[in-house]
């Protein structure tokens, strides 16, 4: 009998995506424990990881990390295929599309903070549209838009600042590691 095995050799890139996705999933699960005043208003801490991956490794890896986070996070929280899952999936897809465009903005002028705020707006925009079309077919869902928009600015700013700082520290650490030892 011949032994038939299928070998999947994970590349360096695969390992990196898995590591980042794991970090994002941890943040998603931790965030689920925070009580929130309104459904839909949450910090979205996992997006910090997406922003860092976007800045360091590019849009393709950011898409992998964000979507893995949505699927695995919802499985862990028992939300898979529940309405909340489709809301976060639509938000994630919309913000990834916007991030794909936003990375082409001049780097000198627009940093992770811009990316974060723009992505946060894409996130709530897509969620509101999905909620209006599917979950609550009434214009009443738009009543809370100002609250969601304010949350997008605040959390977008905070997440963007955290991402920018972590990126700066990672860059500093890399510079230090690259220095020739005396």
């Amino acid at each position: 009998m011949t032994r038939s095995t299928i070998e999947l050799a994970p590349s360096v890139e695969d390992h990196r995506i898995a590591r980042h996705a794991a970090a994002a999933i941890v943040l998603t699960v931790a965030e689920a424990a925070i009580p929130l005043p309104l459904p839909g208003v949450k910090p979205g801490l996992a997006n910090i990881v997406t922003l860092i991956v976007l800045a360091r490794w590019g849009w393709r890896e950011a898409v992998w990390v964000a979507l893995l986070r949505v699927f695995a996070g919802s499985l862990l929280l028992g939300q898979f295929l529940a309405p909340g899952f489709f809301l976060s999936l639509s938000g994630a897809i919309a913000s990834l599309v916007v991030l794909g465009l936003a990375v082409h903005l001049p780097r000198r002028w627009f940093g992770p903070v811009s990316h974060s705020i723009l992505a946060a707006f894409a996130h709530i925009g897509a969620q509101l549209v999905v909620a209006r079309l599917w979950l609550v077919p009434h214009d009443g869902v738009f009543y809370l838009t100002p609250v969601f928009a304010a949350a997008a600015v605040v959390f977008g700013l905070v997440n963007g600042l955290v991402a920018a700082r972590l990126l700066a520290e990672l860059a500093a650490a890399e510079r230090a590691a690259a220095l020739p030892r005396a």
Binding site: L105, W109, F110, V113, A164, A168
Partner: peptide, 8 residues
């Protein structure tokens, strides 16, 4: 504040 760029 240093992390914020003008466009941000």
């Amino acid at each position: 504040l240093h992390l914020i760029r003008p466009g941000d």
